[in-house]
């Protein structure tokens, strides 16, 4: 793309051209080469937005909380971008993206931009498009970017590593007791949210979580993740108040990161994940694609399955061929 057009696109993103921004995110997902060029061009202008990650089991209430958080931030005149990530079906490649159902009340508010993304199965950057979309919304001028993912695998942890502040949503009676909370998810939480706190088991969950947090040794900078309880959307006014206090905790965490000089550490964490993802998608995936194209990959799989040749030997050959080491 020529310089002049890149400049135009950049200006249009900055001016909040919704059609262009959503098409750009689409093209990033679809891996259209010129979309990546835009990211390269705008990257130096990123870094103004604060990114909040929200993760937890399906049905925990992440989208509902996001909806209320949008209102809470909007009440302070902060603009909000939302990226709601849902899994792609590994069998069909399709995806059913339903997070918006809970967020449709912000239509007509140009201070809010909401986008659903599917994880798309490809190796090399499950989260790459999400990262790039964060950059785009950042340059678009959104003050707060909320990223919702279903907290399961490594890719979700990767996505969460792009956030400054991570919320982990738990609910009583969903097998979410502290013992079973996936290792890795527990550690990344900056704030715990107990949602549906009016339901049986909420108190026990709270106590268990407190105990687990008390035992946690390594609290970087001395931040002990607070637990915020949200009760029931059946009482919307109260629920909104509770989400307001959640928003205050999020802002407290932002301030803590800045005061403790930990903001830079988070930026380094983001940068590390983004670099690894970029290498995966630009170095590893093309090699895999090449191997798959001429059937070499399948031949290798066959030989490995028949115990003829070990995977290491093939990997060494591939390294010798493509990396010359």
């Amino acid at each position: 793309m020529e310089q002049e057009r890149l400049e135009q696109v950049f200006e249009r993103i900055k001016n909040g051209d919704v059609r262009l921004v959503s098409r750009l995110i689409r093209n990033l997902e679809d891996k259209v080469p010129e979309a990546k060029e835009v990211i390269k061009y705008i990257y130096p202008y990123t870094g103004n937005a604060k990114v909040v990650g929200i993760t937890g089991a399906p049905g925990a209430g992440k989208s509902t909380i996001t909806d209320f958080l949008i209102s809470s931030f909007r009440a302070q005149d902060k603009t909000v971008g939302v990226l709601a990530v849902d899994p792609t079906s590994p069998f069909t490649g399709g995806a059913l993206l339903g997070d918006r159902v809970r967020m449709q009340n912000h239509a007509g508010d140009s201070g809010v931009f909401i986008r659903s993304l599917a994880t798309r199965g490809a190796l090399g950057g499950l989260s790459a498009a999400v990262e790039d979309a964060i950059h785009v919304l950042d340059v678009m001028g959104k003050d707060i970017i909320i990223v919702e993912t279903v907290g399961t695998g490594q890719s979700e942890v990767d996505i969460m590593n792009n956030a400054h502040t991570i919320l982990v949503v738990l609910t009583p009676g969903m097998g979410d007791d502290v013992q079973t909370i996936k290792a890795g998810i527990m550690e990344i939480a900056d704030i715990f949210v107990i949602n549906k706190g009016d339901q049986p088991g909420a108190r026990k969950l709270y106590m268990d979580l407190m105990r687990a947090l008390d035992m946690m040794q390594d609290l970087p900078g001395g931040w002990k993740p607070p637990i915020v309880k949200l009760e029931s959307i059946a009482k919307p006014a109260e629920y909104a108040n509770q989400v307001d206090s959640l928003k205050e905790k999020i802002e407290e965490h932002f301030r803590f990161l800045k005061d403790q000089k930990m903001w830079e550490l988070r930026e380094m964490r983001k940068a590390r994940v983004q670099l690894i993802n970029a290498i995966e998608s630009q170095v590893l995936s093309p090699i895999l694609e090449l191997l798959q194209k001429d059937g070499e990959f399948d031949n290798m799989v066959q030989k490995i399955a028949e115990k003829e040749i070990s995977p290491h030997e093939f990997a060494e050959q591939i390294r010798g061929k493509y990396l010359k080491i």
Binding site: S22, S89, T92, G94, L96, Q104
Partner: peptide, 28 residues
């Protein structure tokens, strides 16, 4: 549609044309 391999955005009931159009554009 999901099972056909498409990405499907579902927005629920009671949508105004304004809500539908805004969502469709944001979702490209």
């Amino acid at each position: 549609f999901r099972d056909c391999g498409y990405e499907v955005i579902y927005t629920g009931c009671h949508q105004t044309p304004e809500q539908i159009v805004e969502a469709a554009i944001q979702e490209d």
